Computed example of a mutant assay.
Amino acid sequence: MLVLVVGIIYLNYLKPKTTSTTSAFTVVQKQHENDSYWIVGNNPNSKQKKSLKIEVKEKEQWTQLKEKKTYILTYVEKGNDITLTEIVSEAEE
């Protein structure tokens, strides 16, 4: 019984939630170190202009993205980790 209760608590409260988002994203900065790649930017349509750092797993995707350009991106947030899953399109300006 205790194992069941602990399992329910873990699944509902302690396990990091995973959220998938597709939105406009303006790339402000590109970063890389060794074989790790990131983009930093924000959703230009959001009132908060919250800056996000998104990990880009594929170098080809990172190379395709340009600073000061806006794209429609899909990314996944799990806990504090944010990972790019798809470049949907370059946004119309």
Rank of each mutant, 00 (worst) to 15 (best):
G41P: 11
K47T: 11
S23D: 12
E67T: 15
K66Y: 01
T85V: 09
V40D: 12
G79D: 02
V5P: 03
K59S: 08
S20D: 04
Q48C: 01
K49M: 11
Q64S: 12
F25T: 13
T22D: 03
L52W: 04
K49A: 12
N34W: 07
S20R: 02
T85E: 08
V76G: 06
S36N: 13
S89T: 12
S20A: 03
K59A: 12
Q31L: 15
A24C: 06
V76I: 13
N45T: 09
Y71P: 14
E67D: 09
A24N: 13
T70Y: 02
T21L: 12
K47I: 08
L65F: 01
P44G: 10
S51M: 15
E67Q: 12
Y13I: 05
A24R: 11
K15F: 01
E67I: 13
I9V: 10
N80W: 11
E55T: 07
W62M: 03
D35H: 07
E90R: 09
V6F: 03
A91C: 05
G79P: 06
L2M: 09
T63G: 01
S51L: 15
N42W: 04
V6G: 00
K66F: 05
T63P: 02
Q64H: 09
Q31C: 12
M1T: 11
K69G: 00
I87S: 00
T85Q: 08
E92I: 05
Q61D: 14
S51V: 15
D81K: 12
I72L: 13
E33M: 11
T74Y: 01
N43L: 04
E33L: 13
D81P: 01
K78L: 01
S36I: 09
H32E: 15
E33F: 10
N43Q: 04
Y10K: 06
L65A: 00
G7V: 01
Y37W: 15
Q31K: 15
V88Q: 06
E58R: 02
G79H: 06
Q61C: 07
H32P: 02
A24Q: 10
I87N: 06
T18D: 01
N34P: 03
M1L: 07
G7Y: 04
T18K: 09
E93L: 10
V6Q: 07
K57F: 09
L4Y: 09
Y37M: 05
Q61S: 11
I39R: 14
V3Y: 08
Q29I: 15
K57Y: 07
G41F: 09
I87T: 09
T26N: 14
D35P: 02
T70F: 00
V6C: 07
T70C: 10
N42M: 14
V28L: 15
Q61H: 09
I72E: 10
W38A: 10
I9Y: 04
I54Y: 00
